[in-house]
Amino acid sequence: MSASGARPVGAGRRIPLAWAGVIPFLGYLGVFLLLPTGIVLWGAIRAQHGPGLTLSGLKLLVSPTVRFYFVNSIELSGITAVMGALLGAILAYAIATGNPDGLIRRVYIAGSGVLAQFGGVTLAFAFLATVGPAGILMHASWYFDYPQGIGLIYLYFQIPLMVVVFLPAIDGLKIQWREATANLGGSTWQYWRHVGVPLLRPAFFGATLLLFANALSAFATIQAWDNQIAYVVPQQINTSIISEVGLASPNEPQILALGMIILVAVVMTGYALLQRRTARWLR
């Protein structure tokens, strides 16, 4: 939009002040988004004794005590991401091959949208009532075991998220490609082997990475599942902020948070790259 086009007569020559309207919003973001992020980064590299900066905090990231939480986090996120992705892909395929206007498809899509966001404390209660020590379905002895107990609970929101993210990719497979394969004499197996799977692969891995990041930053569910022991990084961050006792270093929360930022940034970059590859053929 040209700056002079819509200016009313009589406004005269004013200094352009349109950008000033954005200042309150940017100020809000600055104080409650950028400043906290800056505080985390600054706290992680600031020297604990005396002035100056140090990278000794980063050494803490690979120390055995801190590594424990990161290994657990990656393990739990990895397992639930891969299983959620596989199961979610199967469910998405079952949805995609049905009637595009059918009731089942609509229910499952709406339901997935809801359940993908359904984490939190209530989810842990729901599973406590189902397979917990006094559960209705069974009294699973492994309910409080790590990672199978919490992994099962995580699948409850990972599978719907996979459906939400992956269904567009399956829907993007054109029927003409299958017909073209058949015309060239290809079998169903050859269609999947040479056409379907190679096309879906980047979308699948991208979605898996998204699920990984999703599980990585999840905190409420695992905290409500077992509030006695800290298994994963978010739990230890919470503990280290609240208690401030027995920490590996006074700035342990900041260093753990920095580790999370690095991990999520790597994963989300991979996701963005794969997403770009998918977008090439998916319209």
């Binding site: 985390v40 905190f219 990084v233 929360p253 948070a257």
Partner: peptide
């Protein structure tokens, strides 16, 4: 979306 809430809260504590 890329800064988990648990990370943001570390920086929010002093604020």
């Amino acid at each position: 979306l890329t800064i988990p809430a648990i990370v943001l809260v570390v920086g929010l504590a002093p604020i």
